[in-house]
């Protein structure tokens, strides 16, 4: 065997291991859902059961947390997407002093640990008389999710041909008509992708939410608290459902993205990099 093929097999072996490492924990966790054991594990296997789904279904705390998470994620989407779009439009238009500074400032929430965003939001809004809860969670999450939206929109804007705007303008369209009929339709795919990402990011956030949630509980907080106190495989059932939903979302999102990429013949990998935290 030549050294080249050893290298080739070596790297294949490594890739296989890597993906095993990536997926085995998730599979074990999912499998534990069906084990008829009080504690979530797969060893030893005490018989297959679906009762943990039933227990989850009857858990009013979970439903409450799910409702809160959905409200917060919807709120974040509504606030963060317009902010991110506005900032991307600004960055793609403005040429002059302070642009780099503003860009750095807009990126800074992504480079700040989530706990610090939570803490600073909590302190600031308490001084305005607002205490922790659903509203403050939306605000805190928006702080960094808007920056993700901004990056995604900016990536698409950078490929926009501005003579299209001039063309529409010279055909008699007003500034608003140009924006509404030319730029916005062009940005729409990126805005939709950003909305999906914003929703998911909000839904799964833990570190920031922990500090600003007040007495309200989100689904992620609920799972973490269950793991530490009162852990049963019902948590695994919830995890399994969330994983399945996520896979569905990810696959649909990715398929749509590739479809678009093929249509506009843009490299799919540079279009919008999925990021979460």
């Amino acid at each position: 065997m030549s050294s080249h093929s050893i290298l080739k097999w070596g790297i294949r072996f490594y890739i296989t291991l890597f993906f095993l490492y990536l997926f085995t924990p998730l599979i074990i966790m999912s499998a534990a859902t069906f084990n008829d054991s009080r504690f979530p594990t797969i060893s030893p296997w005490r018989g297959t059961t679906f009762k943990w789904f039933e227990e989850l279904w009857n858990d009013s705390g979970m439903w409450q947390a799910l409702g809160n998470s959905a409200i917060i994620a919807a709120g974040v989407l509504v606030i963060a997407v317009p902010i991110g779009v506005a900032c991307a439009l600004f960055l793609s238009t403005y040429r002059g002093n302070g642009k780099n500074f503003l860009y750095g400032l807009m990126l800074s929430p992504l480079l700040t640990p989530g706990v610090i965003i939570g803490i600073s939001t909590l302190i600031f809004w308490r001084s305005l008389g607002v205490s922790g809860g659903i509203f403050l969670t939306m605000i805190a999450q928006t702080t960094f999710i808007a920056a993700y939206v901004m990056l995604m929109i900016l990536a698409r804007l950078q490929r926009f041909d501005r003579t299209l705007e001039n063309a529409a303008f010279s055909l008699g369209a007003s500034h608003f008509q140009v924006f509404r009929r030319i730029l916005l339709p062009y940005l729409m795919p990126a805005i939709l992708s950003a909305a999906v990402i914003a929703f998911l990011q909000s839904f799964e956030n833990y570190n920031t939410t922990l500090f600003v949630k007040g007495h309200d509980t989100t689904l992620t907080i609920y799972i973490a608290s269950k793991v530490r106190t009162g852990l049963t495989p019902a948590v695994n059932a919830l995890g399994l459902i969330l994983i399945l939903i996520t896979i569905l979302f990810a696959a649909a999102y990715e398929l749509k993205r590739r479809h678009e990429a093929r249509q506009s013949q843009i490299n799919p990998e540079t279009d919008s990099e999925p990021i979460s935290r």
Binding site: P25, L26, M29, I42, L200, A224, N236, I247, F249
Partner: peptide, 21 residues
Amino acid sequence: LLLIIPFWINEILRTFSWFII
């Protein structure tokens, strides 16, 4: 695509899976 799927899954869940292991 295979990398993106776990990437989208909640950090808490990914951590929890190691808690079980």
